[in-house]
């Protein structure tokens, strides 16, 4: 190839989702066949048009598997998501957003 390949990810979060899924597969949390089957179900919601198998679909599929395997339930994930949102708000622009910046953070 003479042309430079662009990044396969359109945003950093997509890359993080990809890397998490690959790592968890390698940690034995699921096989690629299970993954493809779950992803395939997830992008075919009942009564709605088929969706792209993009990284948003990967994220939703991963959340579903983690909840089902009792690794991280929806409430836990929602609470941590909210903590990151508060942390971002409390982080001066341009600085890295850390969980510790959440005003309600308890180590």
């Amino acid at each position: 190839m003479t042309d430079l390949s662009p990044s396969p990810f359109s945003a950093p979060w997509e890359a993080q989702v990809f890397a998490m899924v690959v790592s968890l597969r390698e940690a034995g949390l699921f096989t690629w066949s299970e993954w493809a089957e779950r992803l395939g179900q997830g992008i075919r919601p009942a009564g709605a048009p088929e969706r792209a198998a993009d990284y948003g679909a990967w994220l939703a599929t991963l959340e579903g598997i983690l909840a089902e395997r009792r690794v991280a339930g929806p409430e836990t994930v929602a609470a941590r998501t909210e903590a990151f949102r508060r942390a971002a708000e409390a982080t001066p622009h341009g600085e890295p957003i850390r969980l510790e910046n959440d005003p309600l953070y308890r180590p």
Binding site: L59, V71, R80, F84, A88
Partner: peptide, 26 residues
């Protein structure tokens, strides 16, 4: 600007990553 921006999807991804790291999966 007082704070930083984080999109809902970024916050979800950061949340999963931090939880799974704490639990030793990542």
């Amino acid at each position: 600007h007082h704070g930083s921006e984080i999109s809902p999807v970024e916050a979800r991804v950061r949340a999963l990553e931090s939880l799974l790291t704490e639990k030793g999966y990542l």
